[in-house]
Amino acid sequence: MREEWSAQFAECLPKLRRFAYGLCGSVVMAEDLAQEAFTRLLATDGEQHEYLERWLFRTVRNLYIDQIRKLNVQERYQESIGALHGSLPVTADRSENLIALEHIRELIAQLPREQREVLLLVGVEGYSYREASEILNLPLGTITSRLARARGKLIDAYAEQLS
């Protein structure tokens, strides 16, 4: 049984990492969240195995919210992002396109968390509105209105950046 969950977890891990990273903007924290989600999965005895993927996304999101509530992690992670960025190769892989991608990440990070998580689930991961409302435990109407705000802001900000 355990092996089976691990295989399923491994399969959705790239998506889960992407979601976690999109939420928190830190590769370090995203990895912590993914690891913690795995640990929790092993501790649950498989009661959620039917909707494992959704359960994992919900867990990562809730863990993230706990984290930012608990202490001033934002600051702590900002520091570690700084450290990580500093150690990246400066010229070799940094074509203009990668810089363009960095701008996009900044725009995402500027969205309020409530809007960002909806955009990540629906726009990036391709969940339906209903699935997103189950993962986030929000009414459907809230999903659609947050998505509209997030998308509108992002398109506006992107256009502004180009002009």
């Binding site: 992407r18 590769v27 990895e31 990246l88 991608l101 992002l154």
Partner: peptide, 25 residues
């Protein structure tokens, strides 16, 4: 922007440093 967002997140997770972090899990 959906596609770019996805690519932008993936690209940050594909750097050598990020992969090193991901290796233990």
């Amino acid at each position: 922007l959906n596609a770019l967002t996805r690519l932008s997140l993936d690209s940050a997770l594909a750097t050598p440093d990020a992969r090193e972090l991901q290796a233990p899990l």
